[in-house]
Amino acid sequence: MIEVRGVNKTFADNHVLHDINTKFEKGKVNLIIGQSGSGKSVLAKCMVGLHRPETGMILYEGENFTDMDHKERVNIRKEIGMLFQGSALFDSMTVEQNVMFPLTMFTTMTKKEKLDRVNFCLERVNLDGKNDLYPAECSGGMQKRIGIARAISMNPKYLFCDEPNSGLDPLTAIVIDNLIKEITYEFDTTTIVITHDMNSVIEIGDNILFIHQGRNWWEGNSKGILTTDNKEISEFVYASDFMKEIRTMMKEKRQ
């Protein structure tokens, strides 16, 4: 479990996060949703220590990550897998080298053990045999899956995914969503997914945190988000005509 307590983050005179308090549960897919620019990525980066919040703290299983020294932080970071918005694969390395990278850096595994682990992870994301391709030779959906394979190679306890299905077609997006969900349940990870895709919200969101203008505005689950009468959420959820139509249909059905 990861807990966020009273986090504030400012860039120059841009106050991005205002007193964020929340919890992310183990073995669940925890979503952070909200408009572009609302501070979702900044919150995630504060949680993994890429940004330092001005106030507040991040607790991993009750341990204060924010106050840790470099060595202790590295130990937590080895338990974090992260899938970046743009995949952030190392483009000078092959798929295999990308997934193997954390193993090479941090384990004393033999070449054979590493390769077995890589192949296991690639199989898990349905990319077996793609070892020798370079990221540039892979489609967007494949790159995300390679990113997931790299993120899970160290058997992480915590999995962060920043907009895992942005820039993907709807079918591929569903494949990625399901993969994240399966991995979460299979390996019992504390998974945090940033998204603004309503389909993901309804399909995979065990817990949902809605961020609005850098504040935690609303928390709940996928049922709740469709029925809440919170104005900002309704505007976000029912932004498209398609969703508005669904809302009318749901209302008619109820009557």
């Binding site: 980066k45 890429l50 970071r77 190392f90 941090f106």
Partner: peptide, 17 residues
């Protein structure tokens, strides 16, 4: 610079490198 803008450097840091 490219590694920076494509978050590859962040990816390294996250891993603890």
């Amino acid at each position: 610079g490219t590694m920076k803008t494509t978050e590859q450097i962040d990816a390294l840091e996250i891993m603890g490198v």
